[in-house]
Design a protein around this nucleic acid. Structure first.
Length: 798
RNA sequence: GGACCGUUAGCUCAGACUGGUAGAGCGCUCGCUUCACACGCGAGAGGUCACUGGUUCAAGUCCAGUACGGUCCA
């Protein structure tokens, strides 16, 4: 079990929980205490103090999670727990990064990147989501430099007109073709920008010609790069327009206009610039309200900006087609459950528009393990990356010195400076197979466990966890990290909406565990098929609870019977001690020692053999379903058999099972065989009920017992015997029910008309049938027309 | 705009691969204190399988398309 504790969610929780915010300029305080009142203005704390608070809170949170998982009966070796902020993960994560760096797969670049202004960090493509936002289309007039009139564009972000570097239209657009190569002047700022052609311009969107700004969206970045445009940056990392002019050559009018918006947020600047444009006459008509998709950081709540910064990237096929092809091939090589999830992977890889940005301007994460040499003037030489030895990992460049340097040289000319950033949390999580398998640390374990068998995860993180793990294994080991991926769906709320904290429709499991027990919750969870979203349905949890209780009661019956039928144990008193559960007032007395394997040779009655035959088929089909990861099918089959077992078989043989003699022994042996198999088939779903009832008659944990095999059962029987008896019993019950009589009501005679095969099967179970139906006389009559069996029952008078 | 998944009883879902009389549970109605279980048991009612075509002796199932819902990617 690994806790993914580093990253932004933890930082945000710590900020809210303790009422602090991290400010690296604040010195470390050895005696720091968080504010008593966390609701006030956040207290700035130094980096080290902030990280300590993160460590403190994650430890508490992880203990709560561990308690929850233990209660759920999740099968985990808790001695092997790790955390992604822990020493071992930091070491693995940094080692993998350094290997990527040495092979040229990790590189740094000064480039436009998606930027969250709230958290002031770069974010990766995989962390984006589109959200619909209300906006307004502003129609702006750009005057042609040759005086030939205005060119009109539409934009939802008029404040970016200060950053405009070109206009683009589609190369085939006849309206603008004459303008290509000409220049226009931007409104308010009068900057001369070219009119250019590019295939990404959409002729039917707005006026068909768009302004290119550095940078308003990712299309701007493409245009800027492919048309080799200059940069005119105006957006600062804090989400406010930069104080300095974007273009030093601007004249006084442009300077004055920019002075109106410098330092404002994007929204405020938009309002101000709209006023200015209206006044200058360059805003044409009224802004038109519109809804459009805006890119957000998935954990953020302000739109992303695009700013130019120096960041670390990891090659992931976003730029080079050979690597992309190799990674697409890995997606084909991987076995997907369900198979269609492969398409999500392919879509994602094919849609990558850049390499993986792995550096984050945050604190609670694995540090990027490099330093930079400082030149004689004290400026970082980003082309002189200083790296630690693998043996020294993990390191923190903020407190450790690079090889060949002294700590005293930090920040000094000719000295060094540490990279201040941490890695994307997925840069560590993408190595979970390497972490768990002991990569470079336990060669024997690694050889035996890597690549792993299966990655279980949900579908929304195919683009992050799954894909990034494939990338790392491909680059480091030239292999898949696992052979299969089993993709689960989501739990939706009862209205089939995604659960989310902001909507307030989240159901947490703890209350359900308290009300219904872990077995019931697991039963419901297991009924959702792989890859399929499941609407939360409390009634299904109740069904699970009913099943678990039924299993306990059935076990109590079977094991109590065995004692009663064993004449040596017949006078043992039942245990009437403290109840284990409300429905378990008695626990079967069963004190013998040794292994309690059922007596296979004792099964002699045809109907008992019929039950065993069905049991064998069940084992085969449940095992096949598990082999295909279709746990829901395995559960459904087992459950169906079990209810049929209790409703029909048990009722049919109950009287015989109470009797001495070989026919009674056969029933008791069969019941015990069935119980043993059913307990083991149910064990993955109902671990508590199975473990408890298993302990009543077996040694050791059921969760270490062998999986049932068909060949451990007695030889072949004919399932038709049980089916025929069940069918007639059902019809006798119906007759009693329709007469509104008790089910114990004696039946003077029952006359069965059916095919010869049916009657032959039935007669092999007629004794049990008469016992169970309280039938005095059973007569059989062969039908000639092949119709369904019919039963005429004559009930005793009241 | 491209793709994927789904649409079966009031609700939640099986019915796949391999076409052959429409299934389960919950809920509802009725009955039953029955010696494992009233946290139980038995019985009953309830569906034009989203729609339109096609293939076939036969389609919930296979093929093509449409609509609606959800999701992923642009």
């Amino acid at each position: 079990m690994g806790w993914d504790d580093n990253g932004l969610p933890t930082e945000r929780r710590v900020q809210n929980y303790f009422g602090v915010r991290c400010d690296p300029s604040v010195p470390h305080d050895d005696d720091f205490q968080p504010p008593a009142d966390a609701t006030g203005e956040p207290v700035p704390v130094g980096r080290r103090n902030f990280i300590d608070l993160c460590l403190q809170l994650t430890e508490t949170d992880e203990q709560a999670f561990e308690d929850l998982y233990r209660r759920l009966g999740v099968s985990v070796d808790w001695s092997l727990t790790y955390t992604t902020i822990g020493q071992r993960c930091r070491r693995v994560s940094q080692r993998a990064f350094l290997r990527n760096l040495a092979r040229g797969e990790a590189y740094q670049a000064e480039a436009p990147c998606l930027w969250d202004v709230t958290f002031r960090t770069a974010v990766a493509q995989a962390e984006l989501e589109d959200r619909p936002r209300q906006g307004a289309l502003h129609r702006l007039a750009f005057g042609r430099s040759d005086g030939g009139g205005d060119v009109l564009i539409e934009t939802t972000r008029p404040e970016l007109v200060a950053a405009c570097v070109a206009l683009v239209a589609h190369p085939d657009d006849e309206r603008y073709r004459p303008l290509f190569g000409a220049s226009v002047r931007t409104p308010l700022f009068g900057a001369e920008v070219p009119v250019l052609a590019h295939g990404l311009a959409e002729p039917d969107k707005g006026t068909g010609i768009a302004m290119v700004c550095t940078f308003g969206d990712t299309t701007d970045v493409t245009w800027w790069r492919e048309l080799e445009l200059p940069v005119r940056p105006i957006m600062g990392p804090d989400g406010r327009l930069r104080p300095e002019l974007p273009d030093a050559a601007w004249g006084s009018g442009a300077r004055a206009a920019y002075g109106e918006i410098a330092g404002l947020t994007a929204n405020a600047a938009r309002r101000r610039i709209t006023e200015l444009l209206g006044r200058s006459g360059e805003l044409v008509g009224e802004p038109q309200r519109t809804e459009h998709a805006v890119k957000f950081f998935e954990k953020g709540d302000r739109p992303l900006e695009i700013i130019t910064t120096r960041q670390w990237y990891l090659r992931n096929g976003g730029r080079d087609m050979p690597l992309r092809k190799e990674l697409l091939d890995r997606g084909t090589e991987l076995a997907w459950v369900p198979d269609f999830m492969r398409t999500r992977y392919s879509n994602w890889v094919e849609g990558l528009n850049g390499d993986w940005l792995v550096s984050r301007q945050r604190w609670f994460g694995v540090p990027i393990p490099v330093w930079y040499a400082l030149d004689a003037d004290g400026w970082p030489r980003y082309d002189r990356v200083l790296v630690p030895s693998e043996a020294s990992l993990p390191i923190d460049p903020a407190s450790d010195a690079p090889p060949g340097y002294e700590e005293s040289q930090r920040g000094r000319p000719g000295g060094f400076v540490g990279d201040p950033d941490v890695m994307d949390t997925w840069a560590t999580s993408s190595l979970s197979p390497q972490i768990a398998c002991g990569w470079e640390e336990d060669p024997d374990l690694f050889a035996r466990t890597f690549p792993m068998d299966v990655r279980p995860q949900a579908h929304e993180i195919i683009r992050t966890w799954l894909f990034s793990t494939v990338v790392r294994a491909h680059l480091e080991h030239d292999s898949l990290p696992w052979r299969r991926a089993a993709i689960s769906g989501w739990v939706l709320d009862p209205d089939r909406k995604k659960m989310s904290k902001s909507k307030g429709n989240v159901v947490t499991p703890i209350g359900l565990l308290e009300t219904y027990g872990a077995d019931a919750v697991r039963y419901w969870a297991a009924s959702g098929r792989p890859g399929t979203d499941t609407a939360f349905d409390e009634s299904q949890i109740k069904v699970g609870r009913r099943l678990a209780i039924k299993l306990l009661n059935a076990a109590r019956f079977v094991l109590g019977l065995a004692a009663a039928g064993d004449s040596a144990a017949a006078d043992r008193a039942p245990d009437v001690g403290a109840p284990a559960a409300p429905s378990l007032r008695r626990r079967p007395e069963y004190t013998g020692a040794g292994d309690r394997a059922p007596d296979v040779g004792a099964v002699t009655e045809p109907i008992d053999e019929a039950l065993i035959a069905g049991l064998g088929e069940l084992i085969v089909s449940a095992t096949e379903a598990f082999d295909e990861f279709d746990y829901a099918r395995a559960l459904e089959r087992t459950e169906r058999f079990f209810w049929d077992f209790t409703d029909n078989y048990v009722e049919l043989v109950k009287n015989r099972a109470y009797r001495d003699g070989s026919d009674g022994t056969s029933a008791r042996a069969c019941l015990r065989i069935a119980l043993s198999v059913l307990q083991r088939l149910f064990a993955p779903f109902l671990p508590y009920a199975c473990e408890e009832s298993w302990s009543w008659w077996q040694q050791g944990s059921i969760h270490r017992a062998s999986w049932p095999q068909q060949d451990e059962l007695p030889g072949a029987g004919d399932p038709a015997v049980l089916a025929a008896a069940s069918e007639v019993l059902a019809q006798v019950r119906r007759a009693k029910s329709e007469a509104r009589r008790k089910l114990r009501t004696p039946v003077e005679s029952a006359h069965v008309t059916a095919s010869q095969e049916f009657l032959e099967a039935l007669s092999a179970a007629s004794g049990d049938l008469c016992d169970a139906g309280n039938i005095a006389e059973l007569t059989l009559d062969e039908s000639t027309d092949g119709e369904a069996p019919t039963v005429e029952a004559t009930l005793a008078a009241e």
